[in-house]
Each structure stands twice: as structure tokens, then as C-alpha cells.
Nucleic acid binder design. Structure first.
Lengths: 124, 124
DNA sequence: ACCGTATTTCCAGAATGATCGAAATAGTGA
DNA sequence: TCACTATTTCGATCATTCTGGAAATACGGT
């Protein structure tokens, strides 16, 4: 990921409403949320929400898909991962002392990428 | 970490010059860089650099320490980790599918937090 | 075709941010 | 004290962002 794209994404997330929106979109992940409902949830006018969504869209953090009358917005998890990865690798720059504790803190949140998968094979 | 502080930090990093500065500060980590040298490295006037540094300072991403005539700026790695962790945990929100591939991508960058004896299992 | 709903675009005002010249402040050494 | 260096603060300008009212566009049902 190039720096300009990362800056765009960071700037997109560096705003109350948009961070809130993105959070909600991640939570509703495979389904997505329509623009109007998003405006209602966050309690902002539709046009204001529309411009915020346009910024998130330009940053590549969300996708939009028309579904009959509504437009469903979904979080782009891959893009989000790319931004996080850029931030860590770029600033980490080979310095393990930054990432290592982060991995440690993150692991309890998510199942660790286990390498030992011996029992499943033996089952067959 | 609270959302407002994270937004401050994300906004601080969402700018060319400041991202560049932070990168350099991380690379020069324990030593830090003086404000003037930073301005020279990034090729911006001193007062412009000063305002950027003030923003990074306010966001808690760097620390400043006067050392005789110069003021040495250092990256606050703990704060950076906190921001990254916030971003991932907050948006992850219990969704492992976001963090798991990130951990996987991050691990080759940094030595995995495990014991250095990798040959053990091969002996068995 | 018409109407109602969903969303965006257009426009403008207020607020914030970026940039930098010039002046002010903090420190060092003679 | 004085001169010198390093950095910040002040002030001004230009660009960008946030916000929302009003109008325009897109879609589906009748």
C-alpha cells in the first residue's frame, strides 16, 4: 500500500462520525447497512451522511452496492487490514519491539494462527 | 484508549509531513531527533515543522525533551501501539477474521513471541 | 405516467488546517 | 552583559473540511 492511500484512509477514520460509521459497518459485516439507516443510527442528516460515506468510499474503506431503492454500504475489511498493516510495517520498519507486544495484545482477542493441526488429520 | 484520543492520533498521522516525521522518529528510536534537524531532513521551514510537531505532541505520539539548546523529539512507541490496538480492537469488536490475517502478516516482520527453540518438535 | 421513498449533488457559511515570514523566547558560551 | 543558535509563537493567507438546506437523480409500486 502506498503512503498516499494510507493517509487518505487514516484521515477518513480520524473523524467522529466516520469512525462511528465504520465501526457499525464492521459489526454488521456481511450484511451491510443502508445509507439512510446509517444516517438515522448516527443521527445526522442524510446529505451529511452521504458526504461522509463518500469520503470513506474514496478512501477505499467501504463499498457501496445498490439494492433496489437503498444503497447498502459494507466495510472493506481487506482495505482496513491493509491500512493497519501499512501503519505497523511502515512505522515498525524492522523494529520488532513495536509489533511484538502488539501481537501479544491482539492474540487474546483473536484466535492465534495455530500451527499444530495434528488431530484433525488423524480423524480421517 | 478513548475514541477522542485515537481520532487525534489518527488525524495527526494522516498528513504527509507528519507521517514522514513520525516514521523517522521511530527509526531513530532511542536517540530521537532535534526539531531543527527534523526540519532540515524533511525540508520544511522550522516554524512549519514546529507546528507539525506540536500536533504530534498534542496527539501524544511523540515526546519532547530539551537538551541544552536543542529540543529532542522522540516517538512514543507505547502511544503508537495503543492507537493501533484501539483501531484493531475497536473495529475488530470480537471479529477474529479481521485480526487473524493481520497477525499472520505481521509475524514475519517481527520475531514471533515464542521460545527460540524451534527444533524441538522435529526431534520427537 | 405519477407518486413516494432513498440517496446524492449543489451550494454556501463557519470552522479548522497548512504554510511561512517576522518577531519573540530559551539556552549557551565568551 | 552581549552575541549566537535553536525553537516556538504570532499573524496572515490560502486551502480544505464539516455541516445542512434545497434541489436533483434513481428506483419501485400503482
Amino acid at each position: 500500500m502506498e503512503s498516499g492511500q494510507a493517509i487518505l484512509a487514516l484521515g477518513a477514520l480520524a473523524q467522529d462520525t466516520r469512525l462511528d460509521v465504520f465501526r457499525r459497518l464492521v459489526q454488521h459485516e456481511p450484511d451491510g447497512i443502508a445509507a439512510g439507516e446509517l444516517a438515522r443510527l448516527v443521527a445526522v442528516p442524510q446529505n451529511t451522511m452521504s458526504s461522509h460515506l463518500a469520503i470513506l468510499l474514496r478512501a477505499g474503506l467501504v463499498t457501496a452496492e445498490r439494492q433496489s431503492r437503498s444503497i447498502i454500504y459494507r466495510a472493506n475489511l481487506a482495505a482496513f487490514q491493509a491500512v493497519a498493516l501499512f501503519l505497523l510495517q511502515d512505522c515498525c520498519g524492522g523494529r520488532a519491539e513495536i509489533c511484538a507486544p502488539l501481537i501479544a495484545s491482539l492474540t487474546p482477542c483473536c484466535p492465534p494462527p495455530k500451527k499444530k493441526r495434528a488431530k484433525e488429520k488423524a480423524d480421517a
